Simulated scan of single mutants.
Amino acid sequence: MLVTMSTLELMEETDALSQAILLSEPFSEYKRAKNELQEDKEAQECIRRFNAVKEQYEDVQRFGKYHPDYKRISTEIRERKREMDVMPTVVAFKKAERELESLLNEVSEIIARAVSPTIKVPTGNPFFDSMSCSGGCGSGGSCSCGG
């Protein structure tokens, strides 16, 4: 592949964009929350317990309600998940993760729209991703996308 000036300029712009993201508040908050979560011994033990039950749950799911431990494991995984989800460091990490994901989704959409308005851009929300076709569905606009 022959490298042209426009390719070099594009690579420089890409580096600048990635640096801007790495210096952003959402990324900084994500790193801080991740470190706090990793250092929280109680949260790590809770996550370990959840993962242990999750493995059992995956085994039980192969047989469904016919597995002898189905009810017990299903209840236990919900309890462990609830226990994990209310821990302050887990809550803070998930919030920071969502904010960083939102920033990355916005950047992806801006880049995609700069290339073409019909490019589909995943939002991270399967409900909205399945509803919007960004004009590329080929149905002639019958889905209200205007494509």
Rank of each mutant, 00 (worst) to 15 (best):
2 L>W: 04
2 L>T: 15
3 V>L: 15
4 T>C: 01
4 T>P: 01
5 M>K: 10
6 S>A: 04
6 S>M: 06
7 T>P: 00
12 E>Y: 10
12 E>K: 15
14 T>A: 15
17 L>T: 11
18 S>Q: 15
19 Q>A: 15
19 Q>T: 14
20 A>N: 12
20 A>L: 14
21 I>F: 11
21 I>W: 14
23 L>K: 12
23 L>N: 12
23 L>T: 08
24 S>V: 05
24 S>R: 07
25 E>V: 12
25 E>P: 00
28 S>K: 08
28 S>F: 02
29 E>D: 14
29 E>W: 01
30 Y>K: 02
30 Y>M: 07
31 K>V: 13
33 A>Y: 06
33 A>E: 04
34 K>D: 13
35 N>S: 08
36 E>R: 09
37 L>K: 04
38 Q>E: 13
39 E>W: 06
39 E>D: 09
39 E>A: 10
40 D>G: 02
41 K>A: 05
42 E>K: 11
43 A>K: 00
43 A>S: 10
45 E>A: 11
45 E>S: 08
47 I>Y: 12
49 R>D: 12
49 R>Y: 06
50 F>G: 02
54 K>I: 00
54 K>H: 05
55 E>H: 06
56 Q>M: 13
57 Y>L: 04
59 D>H: 12
60 V>M: 04
60 V>L: 05
60 V>P: 08
61 Q>F: 04
62 R>C: 07
62 R>V: 15
64 G>C: 12
64 G>E: 13
64 G>I: 13
65 K>M: 13
67 H>L: 04
69 D>R: 15
70 Y>W: 15
70 Y>S: 13
71 K>C: 01
71 K>A: 06
72 R>N: 08
72 R>H: 07
73 I>Q: 05
73 I>Y: 03
74 S>Y: 08
77 I>C: 02
77 I>L: 03
78 R>M: 09
78 R>E: 08
80 R>S: 03
80 R>K: 15
81 K>W: 10
82 R>L: 13
82 R>N: 15
83 E>T: 11
83 E>W: 02
84 M>I: 00
85 D>V: 00
87 M>P: 00
87 M>W: 00
89 T>G: 01
89 T>H: 06
89 T>P: 05
90 V>R: 09
91 V>W: 00
93 F>Q: 03
93 F>P: 01
94 K>E: 10
94 K>M: 05
97 E>M: 03
99 E>M: 09
101 E>N: 12
101 E>K: 09
102 S>R: 15
103 L>Q: 07
103 L>A: 07
104 L>N: 13
105 N>R: 11
105 N>M: 08
106 E>C: 02
108 S>T: 06
108 S>E: 14
109 E>R: 15
110 I>G: 05
112 A>R: 07
112 A>Y: 09
113 R>N: 09
113 R>C: 05
113 R>S: 07
114 A>N: 14
116 S>E: 07
117 P>G: 04
118 T>M: 12
119 I>Y: 11
119 I>V: 14
120 K>P: 00
120 K>C: 09
121 V>H: 02
122 P>Q: 03
122 P>H: 02
123 T>Y: 00
125 N>Y: 03
127 F>Y: 06
127 F>T: 12
130 S>A: 11
131 M>Q: 10
132 S>L: 14
134 S>K: 15
137 C>F: 05
139 S>Q: 03
139 S>P: 00
140 G>N: 08
143 C>N: 02
145 C>E: 13
145 C>A: 10
146 G>V: 04
147 G>Y: 08
147 G>H: 07
147 G>S: 06
